[in-house]
Simulated assay, not measured.
Amino acid sequence: MSLASDLAPHLSYLRRYARALTGSQAHGDAYVRACLETIVAAPEEFPREVGAKVGLYKVFHAIWMTSHVDAPIDVESLPKPEQRFQSQIGGLTPLSRQVLLLTAMEGFGENEAAEIVDLTPGEIGELIEAALADVQSQSRTKVLIIEDEPAISMDLAALVGDLGHEVAAIAMTRQQAVKAAREYKPGLVLADIQLADGSSGLDAVKDILSQVDVPVIFITAFPERLLTGERPEPTFLITKPFDHRTVQATISQALFFNTADALVA
């Protein structure tokens, strides 16, 4: 099997990781393109011995740590959530958060994460502990949950509470979501894609973002459909069925960028 065929199943998930890492679809996808261009230019240097997925993320990490990729975009034309990356002062997301995303969001074990970022498994464990401590120290906010399945919304509400945040409201339709956002002014939105009345969580969020600038995390059973890199797509994405640590890491990263944005302002 060719290297391209080996890498293809992992590309959408690398986009998910890159977007969460940068806080921007445009910049995350730009780093993924740079990663692929590097592999195409020198396929013989790809680390096949560690496997296709680990090798792909390893190449991506090397590019992320050593270069700045300028996405060919008109920043001023983007919606405000996509401009967050431009407002960051400190540059790179801390290594501890990268490791948390690799293990909690992307499902790598500590040995695999160590291979990707070129550290020891022991160092990976220490970085995860540091990232989790950082999560616990984050400012608390109100969270709007847009989800039509009661069992899932209850689970998300419990997770939000465990992180110290307040559930502002749970909405099951686009209309309920827009009304709740207007009333409660949440600091974070968790949104399913398909809602109870056949309406779209994407449309609900579009309506909400026309009124207020708030970080959004989408939840879907079909993440590949929203990780093509071919059109405007979500920056933060959680796959159903979700792991609790994935939700925790994604919420933390979304709020990390939102907090940095506020500090710049």
Rank of each mutant, 00 (worst) to 15 (best):
Y184R: 01
S200K: 03
H165M: 03
E166K: 13
K206H: 10
A191S: 15
D203M: 02
V205S: 04
L188A: 12
S200M: 03
Q194W: 08
D192A: 15
L190N: 11
V167L: 04
I170A: 11
K185P: 02
M172D: 09
V167T: 06
H165N: 06
A180L: 03
Q175H: 09
S200N: 01
G201F: 00
D197I: 04
V167P: 00
Q194A: 07
K179E: 15
Q176I: 14
D197S: 02
I170K: 07
Q175P: 05
V178F: 10
Q194E: 12
Q175V: 12
L202C: 08
D192S: 15
G187T: 12
I170R: 10
R182G: 09
Q175T: 14
K185F: 14
H165P: 04
D207I: 03
V167M: 03
E166M: 12
K185V: 15
P186C: 14
D203S: 05
P186L: 08
A204M: 04
V167F: 02
I170Y: 13
Q194D: 05
A196D: 03
Y184S: 07
Y184F: 13
L202G: 00
V178L: 12
T173M: 01
P186D: 13
V189Q: 15
M172G: 00
E166A: 11
L188G: 13
V167Y: 09
L209D: 04
V205Y: 07
I208R: 08
I208K: 02
I208H: 02
Q194G: 03
A168H: 12
E183F: 07
L188W: 06
S200C: 05
D192E: 14
D192C: 03
L202K: 01
D197G: 06
A177R: 11
K185I: 14
E166T: 15
A196F: 00
Y184K: 02
G201E: 03
A196T: 04
A180R: 00
L202N: 02
R182D: 15
D207V: 05
A171M: 08
A181D: 13
D203T: 06
R182I: 11
D203P: 00
S199T: 06
L202A: 00
K185G: 05
